[in-house]
Design a protein around this nucleic acid. Structure first.
Lengths: 210, 210
DNA sequence: TCCGTTACAGAATAATGTTCTGTAACGGAA
DNA sequence: TTCCGTTACAGAACATTATTCTGTAACGGA
């Protein structure tokens, strides 16, 4: 399960060959050199194609960035929903969110790294509306889980807008540190610790929980 | 306590007037338009100066970004160290880290937002060595606190490289959400909740703690 | 007052993003 | 199979933007 697999999944077929290749090479370059520092010419050379081809498929550099970003978001959400579907208790749900997050980051470090760095550009740029649109539908399953009836009883009395950060914040922070090379242990090696930490921080204070 | 104050603090004196102005205006533009989308010409026009002046002070666009980034980091650390010095227990220390983080973000939203978005570029670019250098000295106080003797007894048995993320991850996540406009409540309004959550997630399991 | 240094101006240049026009490959319809 | 609209690609021309360079003015200590 690597970058190539993700691309086959999202853009299958022979006719999308070059498109996948541009995706793949651009992703690497953006991550290695930085987004600004990567020129269209570099991508063109790496893919042994023409600028025309790149602009044909993606419109412009911003479009390429946005397309990569959306692809990453969608793939990550796919895994998250799968994990969430298998969780039958609140604690398991929290675990599912943390596990799916760190597992995906570790399976797709390239895409994860890029996602972190491209978010701002996409949020500001001309694709911000499309982003908001996609967010809405992509996070349906998550929102449904969060607001499921009876959830509140198992959790502390917390502002709803705080919940996502409380659940995923620590894992997210560690993943960033790992991708930046500031720490060595892989995120998924700590998945239980991270899930535990999240759960301990939001669960209602029971008497006999561990 | 706003952007202007921060600048007076970091670059005082009359002769740094234009430099401060460039900082100030560039920061706003970078945040509003995005870093790539902001041209030197825009900054020049906004400051009513010349490109020569900008390049004289900062070398190039990357240098300007790096200078802004370093300024933000240093100011944030200043507040953190101040809070940390006043904390006399482990729990208070965790609280100090969370409080200083959210308070600074709320006092300096412009700088905070920029910091998030510029990190990658600086990490990759020609200033990465200077960044690593500065990180080392800037985080001295923090590292000292983290490794202070007796700390481990009050905390769960956790990998050291996980600690920073466990303490600050949730607050960090919420700050990002707030700066991006995804949530409404200001970070410092939730400072106690966030500090509590962090503490609950890492403290050793006592019997009679609340 | 002199003089080296720093601060700034703005035209010239270079690097890079984008457009545009043309050509080839594709794939269904007749 | 042939035709034809559509999609895929090529690469030169163009536009925008970053950067350099040369010159001038202000500063500040000797």
């Amino acid at each position: 399960m690597d970058t190539a697999d993700l691309l086959e999944r999202s853009y299958p077929g022979r006719r999308a060959e070059l498109k996948r290749d541009i995706f793949h090479k651009a992703l690497s370059l953006f991550n290695e050199q930085g987004i600004e520092a990567t020129t269209i010419e570099m991508i063109r050379a790496e893919c042994d194609t023409s600028v025309g081809a790149i602009y044909h498929h993606f419109g412009n550099k911003e479009g390429l960035v946005a397309a990569l970003f959306f692809t990453a978001l969608e793939d990550q959400a796919r895994l998250r929903d799968a994990y969430l579907d298998a969780a039958d208790t609140t604690e398991k749900g929290v675990q599912a969110l943390v596990f799916s997050y760190v597992d995906w980051v570790e399976q797709q470090p390239q895409w994860a790294r890029f996602q972190y760095h491209a978010r701002f550009a996409v949020t500001k740029g001309p694709f911000k509306d499309e982003l908001a649109e996609r967010n809405k539908t992509r996070n349906l399953r998550l929102r449904q889980w969060l607001t499921q009836s009876g959830r509140a009883a198992e959790l502390q009395d917390l502002p709803a807008e705080l919940l996502p950060s409380l659940i995923i914040g620590q894992a997210d922070s560690y993943c960033r540190a790992w991708l930046a090379g500031r720490v060595k242990g892989s995120p998924s090696a700590y998945r239980e610790v991270l899930a535990q930490a999240a759960w301990r921080s939001i669960r209602a204070e029971g008497l006999a929980e561990n």
